[in-house]
Simulated assay, not measured.
Amino acid sequence: MPVNLKRVYDEADQHDGVRVLVDRVWPRGMSKEKAQLDHWLKEIGPSNDLRKWFGHDPDKYEEFKQQYKEELEEGDQQEELQKLKNLTKEHDKNLTLLFSAKDKEHNQARVLKEILDRQ
């Protein structure tokens, strides 16, 4: 079973399993109650510099993905990635990664999903 992806603004449902927000910045206009999160791993998000450089430009996605994976191998992000991997194993991949980006194909949650689906 692959890990699911969903915009945090989409309605929560029973098939989401464990809901994990993977954005560094809280989603604009979203209340904690409406988000229905189980976990917020904000330190796993891309660094502010990388996030601003990327700006959700699809043409920069491959470079973003490479730089983000490098970030995930060090510091706070590495620790948070291990927490996410542990959650994924603990719940047998019955997990939904939540993100706020409008672009569903070019974002950090998709990079994390690739990593988790391979474990």
Rank of each mutant, 00 (worst) to 15 (best):
K34G: 00
S31V: 04
H106F: 12
E80S: 15
E79R: 15
E80M: 14
E105R: 01
K6W: 00
I115L: 14
T88R: 07
P2D: 06
Q108K: 01
S100T: 09
H15W: 10
E43P: 01
H39L: 09
E63C: 09
Q66F: 12
R51K: 11
G55M: 09
R118I: 00
P27K: 11
E105N: 08
E11F: 02
N94T: 01
E11T: 11
E90K: 14
K32N: 07
N94D: 14
F54K: 06
D38H: 13
L95Q: 04
K42C: 03
L97T: 08
H56L: 12
R7L: 07
E62G: 01
P58A: 12
L72N: 07
F64R: 12
K93F: 12
G55W: 08
F64Y: 13
K60T: 13
G17F: 05
L37N: 13
K52A: 14
N107H: 01
E43N: 15
Q78W: 07
K104A: 05
Y9V: 00
D49V: 10
T96P: 01
M30T: 06
N94I: 09
Q67D: 01
N48E: 15
K34Q: 13
L21T: 05
K52R: 15
W53Y: 09
N107D: 06
P46E: 00
S31W: 07
S47H: 01
L72Q: 02
K93T: 01
E105H: 05
D10C: 08
Y61Q: 07
G75P: 04
E80N: 13
F99G: 00
W26Q: 13
E62I: 08
W53H: 09
S47K: 02
A109V: 00
L37V: 13
Q66H: 13
D59Y: 11
L5S: 02
E33K: 15
V22P: 02
N48F: 03
I115H: 10
Q67F: 01
D38R: 05
Q66M: 12
L50M: 03
V20T: 05
E74C: 07
K104D: 04
W53V: 12
H56M: 13
E74A: 15
S47F: 03
H15L: 14
P2G: 00
R24C: 05
E79V: 15
W53N: 02
F64E: 05
F64D: 03
D57S: 11
Q66K: 15
K32M: 10
L37D: 03
L116K: 05
G17W: 01
L21R: 04
N48M: 03
I115T: 07
E114W: 11
V22S: 05
A12W: 05
E73G: 15
R7A: 10
D59L: 14
L84K: 07
K104G: 02
Q66G: 01
F99A: 08
L37P: 07
K85Q: 14
S31H: 03
N86C: 08
L50R: 12
L84W: 10
Q119P: 02
R28A: 08
L5R: 09
K52C: 06
L41N: 06
K113I: 04
K6G: 00
E62L: 11
P46I: 06
L41D: 03
S47E: 00
E90S: 11
H106E: 03
F64Q: 05
G55L: 10
Q14P: 06
R110S: 01
L21H: 04
A35M: 09
E90T: 11
E73V: 12
E71P: 05
K102T: 14
K60L: 15
H91T: 06
L116H: 12
